[in-house]
Design a protein around this nucleic acid. Sequence first.
DNA 1: CAGTGGTCTAGACCACTGG
DNA 2: CAGTGGTCTAGACCACTGG
Lengths: 234, 234
Amino acid sequence: MNRIQKRERLRQGLQTLLEQGGAGARLPSERELSERFDVARETLRRCLDELEEEGLLQRKQGAGTFVSAPPVVKEARLLSFSEEMRERGMEPSSRLLRHQTVLAGAKLAQRLMVTPGSAVIEIRRLRLANNEPMALETSCVALSRLPGFDPAALVNGSLYELLDKKYGLQLRSAQQQIHATVLSEDEAGLLGVAPFSPSLMIERTSTSSKGEVIEYAKSLYRADRYRFEIGVMR
Amino acid sequence: MNRIQKRERLRQGLQTLLEQGGAGARLPSERELSERFDVARETLRRCLDELEEEGLLQRKQGAGTFVSAPPVVKEARLLSFSEEMRERGMEPSSRLLRHQTVLAGAKLAQRLMVTPGSAVIEIRRLRLANNEPMALETSCVALSRLPGFDPAALVNGSLYELLDKKYGLQLRSAQQQIHATVLSEDEAGLLGVAPFSPSLMIERTSTSSKGEVIEYAKSLYRADRYRFEIGVMR
DNA sequence: CAGTGGTCTAGACCACTGG
DNA sequence: CAGTGGTCTAGACCACTGG
């Protein structure tokens, strides 16, 4: 399409200008740019909006448009343990420690948004990276959302993959709370560290694209091997 | 201004429509809405863009505009300690424990992106919420970026505010690393908890809109009073 | 095909800044 | 004050969908 080509040319032309200018440089005015690229000023502005959103430039009313240094912020994304470890260049694996069906108490029921007393599958796994213990994870999923769920499938697999393949459930967002705590003797033993070592505890409530709460998980990470990293914008 | 009122009315009118409709409902067409609210279609579209960005509605070319169930994900934003505590409904304050000018070693120089050996101001503050100790914070800023900097101004103020007012520096993004650790006896004493209590340690490197690294800060939060909360999307 | 959202235009007036 | 970005308008044509 002619239109797409035009948009593309505009975008690339602007990026070239940004590169030539370097951080701090001032761009020509919007009226001049729109004439130069032969587009309406509003069209140009929409393109500048995008570039500003991406942090490549800054506009200041009455003063002008200035090139920014691109930010290095790493966006937080919802990753499974397996995905995250692979991204960190490590090979993930799991050991299924225990699984049982329990009846949801008031607190858990609220977290999973189910009625108190409904059946919940609780899965406790030791999660390894390069065959070294990394975290101790307890996941809870409501049985009603996962008919015929078989925890045995989790011995070496990702819960997220299973949810997707078997139930067509894609997790879309999660709420995470991060605390610092110390490990009990049992927990420390499983993770292979000294008792009362510090630990990063992450509680996560994951929600499907339909808005249903699918999983509540509580993970204890070894503080000596794991850091939580996040980029934030103002 | 008439213009602001108009925009405000439009926004509120649309939100009312969204509420009345409920998730899944289909809004009237853009042409009809623009007529009803007496604005140009482009103006209406800009408002719809915002609402879509916020996840309140979804548009589908050729089909229509539909009300979404609002997401509950809380976006991570770069907040100063003061801003964050106020948002949590607590009154922030600070006690300046120490400040000194040091020469940047290799590690600090790399973090601040300055040449090793340059002067760096190091500020150590006890940060309180409702007059209770909450965190122990050590901030480092390169002197070259803040000529004539006076740490005394920080006794009861926000560093971010000072940077903005005095130097016109707005922080735009930050990279944060979150660890779990235990407090030394000194640190525990200052924070008013038992020695070797667990602590959430947050290291933050903040960058200005021009892409310069402005601050490196290391904070030790009381694990019993502070949790880091974050929403993530897939 | 009628109707929807997506994009673009030329022009106007406003708020803000100090090159 | 001239010049900048911010907002809005009325209208056009496009791509896509199936109420």
